[in-house]
Amino acid sequence: MQRIELKHLRATRWFHWVNFPLLFAMIWTGMWIYWANDVYRVGAGDVTLFHFFPDPVYKALGWDHKLSKGMAWHFFFMWLFAINGILYVAYTAISGEWRYLVPNRHSFREAIQVTLYDLGLSKAHPPARKFNGAQQIAYTSVVLMGFGSLITGLAIYKYVQFAWLAALLGGYPMARWLHFWLTMGYVAFFLVHIAQVVRAGWNNFRSMVTGYEVVNSDKEAL
């Protein structure tokens, strides 16, 4: 026996899918800005393992020579990104949806279990509920990262007016550094997220679009 069950609320789906292109736009226009002073790397001392980014990357993606344009688009999309994010957090808090999302004391151990299972190192299937521990940690983290991007961005954008914020973040260069690495964090999140969505399959993906999932009712559905 199968039945159809509501998994993701309409508002949550809208917030998610509106955020996706907005975050993409923030990253893309952010790279137009970053190109003008591309100082970050992975390495130590004189050894650079990877420089963000090699010239061919800029050329291939058209990220070069677009500083003014990048700033103008970035300072337009920032409002939409911030408003959507704030509304999402408010909605999630008020509706009680946060209960599924915020990690609890079991989440961390469960996240390890999920990771081992996903890497094929364990046969213990992760619990079948809306969000497992790994998801709770990942999704909550990415919301906190969004908050981090807003405050580091504000500290860079209006350094003098929000000097206290920049000081709290360790100064202007540190705020810029954090702003950049949070961006790299989204990229990493995105890659894992896509891999997991592909792996979870069509029924799961479809539920993020339609809201509904087909479940086997002989199993306890949560």
Binding site: M1, Q2, R3, I4, V209, T210, Y212, N216
Partner: peptide, 19 residues
Amino acid sequence: MSRQPDIQTEMARKTRRGF
């Protein structure tokens, strides 16, 4: 697993609408 036409139809309708 037995296919349930009503569920399949309903889900197809929701999928169409969602996408």
